[in-house]
Amino acid sequence: MKDFRYLDDVTTLAYDAERCVGCGMCEMVCPHGVFQANGKKVAMVDRDGCMECGACALNCPTLAITVNPGVGCALAIIHGWLKGKKAATCGETSCC
């Protein structure tokens, strides 16, 4: 997102241009305009705008995109630290 920037160079987003067939799905589903059509393929124009939602990777027909999505809530992360990755929720009052 242009107006809101978070930490740089942390996203697990990876894009393999070799596999790209230029279908444009990633550009369509990304809520932050990370990808943009660039001739026969797409280009990653704002990698640091990625929030790891996973929409692009899930909808890429050639698996050219991978990303590690997860729960971003601090309490959930703390639970994950204390009890292991599987326990990463915020508890009974969880929002999700």
Binding site: M1, Y6, V10, T12, G49, G70, G72, A74, A76
Partner: peptide
């Protein structure tokens, strides 16, 4: 903790 309520922070960054 507000990071969990935003539409732009990444879990890895948090």
């Amino acid at each position: 903790n507000f990071t969990g309520s935003t539409p732009f922070t990444s879990p890895t960054g948090v």
